[in-house]
Write a protein that binds this DNA or RNA. Structure first.
Lengths: 349, 349
DNA sequence: CAGCCTAGTTTAAACGTTTACGTGTAACGC
DNA sequence: GCGTTACACGTAAACGTTTAAACTAGGCTG
C-alpha cells in the first residue's frame, strides 16, 4: 500500500541513496535535487518505514519508559514530560506498566530489548537487579530512580525528599508548633524510609520530639486510623505531617469525623502535591515533587548517554519544595506559641 | 552484540527457517529439534529482533493509542486496560498524547503510520476528519470514541452518558427533590452536549423544570461560580447535578464557603467517578464511566477487525452507572417531600 | 595537460527476519 | 519395486532501509 523509498527515488529521478540522504541530512545534496525529492515525498504521501530503518541502523527510535502503574497519580506527569521530550527529539516513548510485578517487569524489559530500544528509563519504586544486569549487558542506556549508583550506561535520578520534610518541619516550627506527629508509609519503600528518617533527624535538630512517628501504608484509610491513634493520647499533637497526600486526606477525614477543625485545632500537611491536594477542604499544605522535571531529566539522562560513545552515566538530583496552602496555621493554644523562637540560635528581632 | 537467529540456528544445528518456525509455531517441528532450538535460545539469551520481524511481515506488533493527555484522570484507566489487553496478545501499545492539539495529532498519526502499526485507537475528545481519512486510506484498523459511524476498518465506541443522567435524576426525584439544577460543560464537547440534552429531556419526562440548566467549563472554578449563581435566586434548588466531578467539587466548595451543609441543605452529584470522588467531604454521589472497560473494548475492536480479512468495523456500547455515596439525601424542606410519588403513574404500594 | 581535489551522486552490501518452494526420507499400498 | 503420501526440514528471495565505497564531472594546481 504505502509508497516506499524506491517509488520516491523513481519519481524524483534519483537513486534511493540520495533520497535516504536528504531524509536524514547525512550528506550534502544540491538544492535542486533535494527539492525534487521533497516534492516527490509530498506527492506520494510517503513516510519512512521505521522497521526497515531500525533494522538497517541497528537501533530503533523507541525509548522505553517503565513505570509501576499509570493509574498511580505519581506517573502521568512524568510520562507526559518524557514523551514531550522524546517527541522533540524525533523519538517515541513506549511506556509500560509493571503493575508492581517483578515477573512482568522482566518480561517488559525483554520486549524492549527485542524492539532494539537504545535507551530505557526505569522509574518503578522497586528495581530488580536482574533488570539492571540485563540492560547493562546489552549496553543500553538506562536511567533509574533512586538507584543509588552510577556506572557505564547507568544514570541515576535522586529525589531529594529530605528537603521537603525539612522545609515542612521548619514551616510548622516557625508557626509555633511543638508537638508535631508524623505518619509514614511502608518502610520497604525507599521513599517512605527516607521521609521518615528525615522527619526524625530534623525533629531532633529542631528540638522537637522525634518519637511521634507512626508507620501506616500511604493510603487514605491508613491515614484515618493512624490519626485516630494520635488523637487518643493525653496530649495530642497540634500538627500532623503525613508522609503522602493520601494519608493526609485520611487525617482530614478523621478530624472531620471527630469534629476537630482543620486548621484551627489541628494543622495537617501532606507530601507529593497530587492534583487533588489543591481541592481538599481546607486546601492541603504539602511538599511538591517536580514530576514533570523528573520526566524531562530522565530523557535528558538517556539522551546524554546516547550522545557519548562512552555511555558514561551520571547522577541527577531533583529537589522537592514546600507548597503552603490553607491546612497549616499557628496552633490555637497560647502555650504553644510562647516557644516561637524556633531556631536554636536566640531569636533577636 | 545480541545473538541473532543465525547464531541460534548454528548452535542448534538447524536452519534459520526452522528456528523461525519454532518461534512462531508456523509449522510442525519434531519434538527433539524444537527442544534443541529452545535450549539454544535460552543459552544465548536470544530475543527476536522485532524490527526485522516487522519488516519481513509488513506490519508491526505495535498498536497506537492516541489520547488527549495522560494527565487527564479520564485516560490512565483506559490506557492501563488497553495495555494489559495488548500484552496478553503479544502486542505493545504505543500511547501518545495529542495535548488537544490537532497539528500534533496529525503528526502522531503520521508517526504511527511510519511504524507500520496495524491498528490504532483514537480516544481523543475531538477527532480530525483528516486523521480518519489518513488511517482509512492506509487500511489501518481504527477505533474511535463517539464518532457516530462505522465503516470498513472503522469501529466506534459509544459511551451511554444518557443512562447515567437518567439514573441520577430518577435517584434524586425518588428522594423527593423537585427543584434540581444542572451545571454542564462547554458545548463544543460532544460529551457535554449529550449530558445536557439528557438532563433536559429526562427532567421534562419526570415533570421537573428543565430550564434550570447552566453551562460552565468542567472545572472546579467553573462549578464554584455556577453554584453561586444558582444559590442567589429566590427559590434555590435543593439538588445540583454537575456535569462532571470537578464541577461538583467546585459546588461543594461554594456550599462550604456559604455555610450551606451538604447533603442536609443541598444534595450534590457529579459525573465521571474520578478517583477522588470517593474522598470528597461528603463522598460524592456520581455516575461512573467504566474506563477500564473502554480500554478493553478499544483493544477488542481492533483485534476483531484485524482477524477479519474484510476489516469490518462495528459499534460497541458501554453503559454508565449510578454510584450513590453520601452527597445525596432527601431534601430538608417538608414541602418537597410531599411529591414523593415521582413516577407519572400513580404510586400505589 | 596530467594529476588531484571536491561536490554530488550511484552501487551494492548489509541488517535479521518471514515464507513460498523445494528437497529428502520413511512408510505404505498395490 | 514403484508411485504416492506425509512429515521434517532447508534454500533463498523478499521486506525497505542505511551507509561504506566507488564513481563522475568539473575545476583547480603546478
Amino acid at each position: 500500500m504505502g509508497a516506499s523509498i524506491k517509488d520516491v527515488a523513481a519519481k524524483a529521478g534519483v537513486s534511493i541513496a540520495t533520497v535516504s540522504h536528504v531524509l536524514n541530512g547525512t550528506r550534502i545534496t544540491s538544492q535542486p535535487t533535494r527539492e525534487r525529492v521533497l516534492a516527490a515525498i509530498r506527492e506520494l504521501g510517503y513516510s519512512q518505514n521505521q522497521s526497515a530503518r531500525n533494522l538497517a541502523r541497528g537501533r530503533s527510535t523507541l525509548l522505553g519508559l517503565l513505570i509501576s502503574d499509570v493509574r498511580n497519580p505519581f506517573f502521568p506527569d512524568i510520562t507526559a514530560a518524557f514523551q514531550d521530550q522524546a517527541l522533540a527529539h524525533e523519538m517515541d516513548a513506549l511506556v509500560m506498566n509493571t503493575n508492581y510485578d517483578p515477573h512482568r517487569t522482566l518480561n517488559s524489559v525483554r520486549r524492549l530489548l527485542g524492539l532494539q530500544v537504545p535507551g530505557v528509563a526505569i522509574l518503578t519504586s522497586q528495581i530488580d537487579p536482574a533488570v539492571i544486569d540485563m540492560l547493562a549487558r546489552h549496553r543500553i542506556a538506562a536511567v533509574y530512580l533512586d538507584l543509588g549508583r552510577v556506572d557505564k550506561s547507568i544514570s541515576n535520578i535522586v529525589i531529594e525528599y529530605e528537603t521537603g520534610i525539612v522545609l515542612m518541619l521548619e514551616h510548622l516550627s516557625q508557626l509555633g508548633h511543638r508537638r508535631i506527629a508524623y505518619i509514614g508509609g511502608p518502610l520497604h519503600l525507599n521513599s517512605a524510609q527516607r521521609r521518615k528518617n528525615a522527619f526524625i533527624e530534623t525533629a531532633a535538630r529542631l528540638g522537637l520530639d522525634p518519637s511521634l512517628a507512626l508507620d501506616a501504608d500511604f493510603t487514605v484509610k491508613g491515614g484515618y486510623f493512624a490519626c485516630s491513634k494520635l488523637l487518643s493520647v493525653p496530649q495530642p499533637p497540634t500538627a500532623i505531617v503525613a508522609g503522602n497526600d493520601l494519608t493526609a486526606i485520611g487525617v482530614l477525614h478523621r478530624a472531620y469525623d471527630g469534629k476537630i477543625r482543620v486548621p484551627e485545632d489541628l494543622s495537617v500537611t501532606g507530601f507529593d502535591d497530587i492534583l487533588f491536594a489543591e481541592y481538599t477542604q481546607p486546601a492541603l499544605t504539602t511538599a511538591s515533587i517536580p514530576r514533570a522535571e523528573i520526566g524531562r531529566v530522565a530523557f535528558q539522562a538517556i539522551w546524554t548517554m546516547l550522545s557519548d560513545p562512552e555511555l558514561a552515566g551520571r547522577e541527577y538530583r531533583v529537589p522537592t519544595r514546600l507548597v503552603v496552602r490553607e491546612s497549616t496555621v499557628p496552633p490555637a493554644n497560647g502555650r504553644e506559641r510562647s516557644h516561637h523562637g524556633i531556631q536554636s540560635e536566640p531569636s533577636v528581632r
